[in-house]
């Protein structure tokens, strides 16, 4: 199947701004699904609110456009009732870690078989460029005209500490790498998190003088380095890119089935 067969083409061109990284994330994700050869009917995508959440309207899978920050809660419900389906949950940085911060850490703690994709553009784009928990210190936003003073979350460290069993980070510059990580995340049994740095040229880029979309994408190559590479060793201030965690642990739905069997004491 071609990539376009996974799209609801009647909704194109999409509503994202020119040069928005979320389109590239969609592109990489569809390639991952296509290369894995998963049937459209076996995938459920749930999303919350925000620019990133609009992705669920563009894919021809089962889709749920749910409440702000609650995409993982909806996904947990779907997964528990239909454990055979693959759950993909794309979220924005604010959606995943501010409004849905608790759902994020608790889904990771349970190790439920869901793939969370954090499309990190460091800003609330849809509502006009307010700073998010991933903006970091010293950034400009509509709600921080004199620069931010808030520290940011490290998604990878947070997911790791919360108990996610697959954690990776990449960027929209490294689109083939993103496809590769997404493939591994989708096939992973347990809670998997893939953080993809994604440019917002309209709000974040313009306010922080990071240039146009191609400049912002090219910048991702400069500020990141592959895990274990010499570049990262020589300059630890760079953002690490790669698979940080990949381990096996009891999965929530399987454990739930076991507890049902135990409670029923073998009765059917």
């Amino acid at each position: 199947m071609a990539i376009k067969d996974y799209l609801r083409q009647r909704f194109f061109p999409h509503m994202w701004c020119p040069g928005c990284g979320h389109g590239t994330v969609l592109n990489s994700l569809l390639r991952a699904v296509e290369e894995l050869g998963i049937e459209k009917n076996d995938i459920v995508m749930t999303s919350g609110i925000g620019c990133s959440a609009r992705i669920s309207g563009y894919v021809d899978f089962h889709s749920l456009h749910s409440l702000h920050g609650r995409a993982l809660a909806f996904a947990t419900g779907v997964k528990l009732s239909q454990p055979k389906l693959k759950l993909l949950v794309p979220m924005g940085d604010g959606d995943a870690l501010a409004i849905g911060g608790n759902h994020f850490i608790h889904a990771a703690r349970r190790n439920i078989d869901i793939t969370a994709i954090v499309m990190n553009n460091k800003i609330y784009g849809m509502t006009g460029g307010q700073y998010s928990p991933l903006s970091g210190v010293g950034k400009k936003a509509t709600t921080a005209p004199y620069l931010t003073i808030d520290n940011d979350f490290d998604v990878v460290e947070l997911a790791k500490a919360a108990g996610a069993t697959f954690v990776a980070r990449t960027t929209t510059f490294h689109a083939t790498e993103a496809t590769d990580f997404l493939k591994k995340a989708i096939m992973h049994k347990g809670f998997s998190v893939v953080e993809i740095l994604s440019q917002c040229p309209t709000h974040y880029g313009r306010k922080n003088k990071e240039g146009d979309a191609p400049q912002m994408v090219a910048n991702y190559d400069k500020i990141t380095a592959r895990l274990g590479s010499k570049k990262l060793e020589e300059n630890p201030a760079l953002i690490g890119r790669g698979i940080f965690v990949d381990r096996q642990a009891p999965e929530y739905c399987e454990e739930y089935d076991k507890i049902i069997e135990y409670a029923m004491k073998g009765r059917k």
Partner: peptide, 8 residues
């Protein structure tokens, strides 16, 4: 093709 945000 792989980086096009508009899948165009």
């Amino acid at each position: 093709e792989i980086r096009c945000p508009d899948l165009a």
